[in-house]
Design a binder for these strands. Structure first.
Lengths: 271, 271
DNA sequence: CTGGGCGTTTGTCAAATACAAACACCTATG
DNA sequence: CATAGGTGTTTGTATTTGACAAACGCCCAG
């Protein structure tokens, strides 16, 4: 209705965007019926019905009785994407070993669209937490308040970090969260200097994490790893040093293996 | 299999379908550039460019240099969908225990759109196979030649089984695969009678699997589990009986727990 | 310096979608 | 048992919106 000037650059297809609005709504509502979705999205029933029918024909949505749900197709495609990721393929067993050795939670993360995504999580023996925490990869989250995130930020080009901050800001999570540019850039330099990152109750009160980046041979950061646990335990001096050693060492092992494999990866895709 | 005349009941949105064509092409090609995709999909460059831009704006695609890839967004949504599935939430730890106890591969599967989807896999100590096999959930596959699939089919309404056969046929995979309706329906009755299913080299030569269904209190089948291993080992009489016992027992435990949690309404399922 | 490859942008017309209203179906309830 | 109000689904139609080809700018190799 309002005359949007035909926005110059990339012409975005509204029909496709709306399809993903439907997907997001189905996620938010944990499945929904036609009318419910129509209200939620401010579209007419018939339009929503057509989107759902199409998504269903594409097998990304299932209908159970009268309610529509996202289908496991997302999981299948998602697992494919994860398996394509070299950091995941190489890092997974190493992270498992790290969790076993330290007994703490271990994480493998990467960056996408300026946010952090966990590729894999394992909990060691000492790690106690809700089943939910361990089993669910939560949504993409800010990079500036996690150990994995800060390790990544520290090795991203400065202009990219600036872009990310412009895009998402630096929202606080606890009293310890870094929320200003200057502080953050200082922190990132410290991280680069000492080779590991620390999340000192900046995300969750009582939780500390130690992270280290994984970069490829060209200096590009592929992602990062971390271990985390209760501050009380994590802060004991000798234990702390030991953990840093383990994390940095594991990151190093992954790095070497990734770079050995990636030499073949520079070829253009065949046919 | 022929195209439907456009005038039909559910009006399907071509723009949305094409967006998913792009997604599938990106999966097939392991990422691609604009021109490559345009050729692959028989669309003009500019059109493909617009689809990619839109998918990127929606964060389901990332651009690395000049090549476009599916993003981890699929994994995040997929993990959400999996976690929504009660069979996964309840079954996962039980399947892990089953794999540990038996030492074999253990699977947790469900049905969607008439095909089988693995929700979870674990490999026990004795199970040796390629890393790939274990780590990757492959695409949705036929139900009629796996132990999990047959256990599911055996407890689906007959008309639904008919629909599935009409839709996908009964393609052979090995010499042992069941490829006729009559044989299959007989087999399904046997499975119902004895309470477990057997895949005797019907999918992969040399591999046997034992499966059992998980149904809810209304008799609707939610999915199934299985263990699998080399025929030589699996066929040893006492071991065989022991495995059946373990599988049926685990399925039962999951069933009880699911039904305790599922106090609410349930709808009959359609595709 | 030049040609051909690429990704991106633009103008235009036809096609594909949004909308509302009608339809069919349920299941509560007076 | 009929009716009212709630679904999901279908249809006709106006027009928004996406498809196309051609042009643009860029980069690299010959």
């Amino acid at each position: 209705m309002a005359d949007e000037p035909t926005t110059g650059s990339p012409r975005t297809l509204k029909t496709v965007s709306r399809a993903f609005d439907v997907v997001r709504a189905l996620e938010e509502l944990d499945g929904a019926r036609v009318t419910e979705l129509a209200n939620h999205l401010d579209l007419s029933k018939s339009v929503v019905y057509n989107y759902l029918s199409t998504l269903r024909a594409e097998k990304f949505v299932v209908k159970e009785g009268d309610t529509y749900q996202l289908s496991l197709q997302f999981l299948l495609v998602g697992e494919y994407v994860r398996y394509q990721n070299i950091l995941y393929r190489i890092g997974k067993p190493e992270i498992e070993e790290l969790a076993e050795k330290t007994g703490e939670y271990a994480h493998l993360a990467t960056e996408q669209h300026g946010l952090g995504v966990n590729l894999y999580k394992v909990s060691g023996e000492k790690a106690v937490g809700s089943d939910y925490q361990v089993n669910k990869l939560q949504r993409a989250d800010y990079l500036h308040f996690s150990a994995t995130g800060k390790a990544i930020l520290a090795h991203l080009p400065k202009e990219r970090v600036e872009w990310i901050i412009d895009q998402y800001g630096l929202p606080g999570k606890t009293e310890a969260t870094i929320t200003t540019r200057e502080e953050l850039f200082e922190e990132l330099e410290t991280i680069r200097d000492r080779g590991y990152s620390l999340n000192d109750e900046e995300e969750i009160k009582g939780l500390q994490a130690i992270g280290a980046p994984v970069t490829n041979r060209h200096g590009r950061v592929l992602g990062s790893i971390s271990v985390s646990g209760p501050v009380r335990r994590m802060k004991q001096p000798e234990y702390h040093e030991q953990l840093i050693e383990s994390v940095v060492n594991t990151a190093n092992v992954i790095e070497v293996n990734v770079n050995m494999e990636e030499s073949d990866d520079d070829f253009p895709t065949f046919s």
